[in-house]
Design a protein around this nucleic acid. Structure first.
Length: 478
DNA sequence: TTACCTTTGAAGGCG
DNA sequence: CGCCTTCAAAGGTAA
């Protein structure tokens, strides 16, 4: 299992990462950022930054202002409290210099957002996360954690919840599980030796597995009460040798090869159709047997899509942004995260791409017949009418404002329903980029092939595109 | 109660 | 092959 260096050294070779096309994509991105740096004072990027800045500031003003009335310093104090709290847990991981790519973040003018923005970013996390495969983990015994009773597979407010792989890779040898796990035991057989440490599932039973797993996760960052966030858990008691208690997932613990342990837990991708926690087996027994088959069918758990790289990144960083920026609105937070994502170096992004690739690989192994199409229509989206309206793409804010940056189009105001976002359709961004001869990164070449097996060696290259049809990234897994 | 917002990436469908 | 659509997470917000 490779130990992905978080620095520029081992995994480094960032220039070695990615297929040529991918490098091109990154190059374009970097050039764009460079342009931003060079042209910091003017230009469409600046417009974008200012626009976003105003948006973010508005949001922060709403969120932070309530907690710390009229005091930017106070807000900053909160952020510092959060940063301090972070530091307590990540003191040894603060490898990332305080140097900020300010041009990239100039849109975030709020000092509480700008300060410490990059202090605990991907590096700190991946120092601990990217440890493949799980080490023997002797002596690492994460503390049992109280079960949550909120939505299944969802963390408490502000608590980052990691994907199974994400957590697994950093929870090497869990030994205990919440008390309510016993009611949710699902026996599954090993499917592949490589995944034995992750989930043991029979492929045929995937779709029927109930997903009642609460996802106990202590807060990564002991938020100060002054931040206005409830603390659902006591601050994690970092046991010696247990670097990241929050990454210890009980379900993974159960399935992680603990001798004689009877159970494994479904992949968190399996959720009830409602997205809410399914009935416990005990409760289910109260159901009459006359429950219609159709009803049971309707209650079939939904297998969620595996998280992509950005989603994984968001999951990890959301709490930090919330803590630093005292933001709550996910839309605003996601904008910040999107900017941060673009500000990440190739190496940093590569780690998430690699993690996402493993997620997909695992997901593929667990649910062989699953297709993303299966979930189509389960989440009701905007009306077709809006889509059609948006497809016209004739309301391009670029053309109207003279902006030339794709990001300019992306900087649709955070408006209420029917506002700018609706006048700026999703595909508009693709249109705007295409119009400028650019390409979305999501449309980069397919057929990517991993040059790295996660189970071996260090990263020499990573293909970010989807695997070629029928060509798994990890040949020995399929 | 439910959809929307907002982000990027993956995947499937369609022309 | 390129484009479009949908979904994945998250939580506040509006209908």
């Amino acid at each position: 299992m490779p130990q992905l260096d978080s620095g520029g050294g081992g995994a480094g070779g960032g220039d070695d990462l990615g297929a040529p096309d991918e490098l091109l994509a990154f190059q374009d991105e970097g050039e764009e950022q460079d342009d931003k740096s060079r042209d910091n004072a003017a230009g469409p990027e600046r417009d974008l930054a200012e626009l976003k800045s105003s948006l973010v500031n508005e949001s922060e003003g709403a969120a932070g202002g309530a907690g710390v009335p009229g005091s930017g310093a106070g807000a900053r104090g909160e952020a510092e409290v959060g940063a301090e709290a972070l530091g307590r847990e990540h003191t040894s991981q603060r490898l990332f210099p305080d140097k900020l790519p300010e041009p990239l973040e100039d849109g975030l003018k709020a000092p509480e957002c700008a300060s410490g923005m990059y202090k605990d970013t991907v590096y700190s996390a991946f120092n601990l996360l990217m440890h493949y495969p799980p080490p023997s983990g002797a002596g690492q015994h994460p503390q049992p954690q109280p079960p949550l009773h909120n939505k299944a597979s969802q963390p408490a407010h502000g608590v980052p919840q990691l994907s199974p792989l994400y957590e697994h890779f950093s929870s090497p040898h869990p030994t205990s599980a919440p008390a309510d796990i016993n009611q949710k035991q699902v026996h599954r057989t090993l499917q592949t030796p490589d995944l034995s440490g992750f989930y043991s599932l029979t492929s045929g039973s995937m779709g029927q597995l109930p997903h009642t797993v609460s996802w106990p996760s202590p807060p990564l960052y002991p938020l100060s009460p002054s931040c206005g966030y409830r603390q659902h858990f006591p601050a994690p008691t970092a046991a010696p040798g247990a670097p990241y208690p929050r990454f210890s997932h009980p379900s993974l613990m159960l399935g992680s090869g603990v001798p004689g342990h009877p159970a494994a837990i479904p992949h968190p991708a399996i959720v009830p159709p409602s997205g809410k926690q399914e009935l416990q087996p005990y409760d289910r027994s109260l159901k009459t047997q006359a429950e219609s088959k159709a009803e049971k069918e309707a209650k079939k758990p939904t297998i969620k899509k595996p998280l992509n790289a950005f989603m994984l990144y968001m999951k990890e960083m959301r709490a930090k942004v919330i803590a630093e920026c005292t933001l709550k609105e996910s839309a605003a937070i996601n904008q910040i995260l999107g900017r941060r994502w673009h500000a990440l170096s190739r190496e940093e992004q590569a780690k998430y791409y690699e993690l996402a690739r493993k997620e997909r690989q695992l997901h593929m192994q667990l649910y062989p017949g699953w297709s993303a199409r299966d979930n189509y229509g389960k989440k009701k989206r905007r009306s077709r009418e809006k889509h059609q309206e948006s497809n016209t793409g004739e309301t391009c804010p670029v053309s109207s404002s003279g902006g030339s940056s794709p990001g300019h189009c992306m900087a649709a105001p955070l408006s209420p329903k029917g506002g700018g976002a609706d006048t700026q359709p999703r595909n508009f961004r693709a249109w705007a980029l295409w119009k400028q001869g650019l390409h979305l990164r999501s449309q980069k070449p397919t057929g990517g092939t991993a040059m790295l097996s996660p189970w071996e060696g260090s990263i020499t290259a990573v293909a970010y595109g989807p695997p070629a049809p029928g060509l798994p990234h990890l040949p020995h897994l399929s």
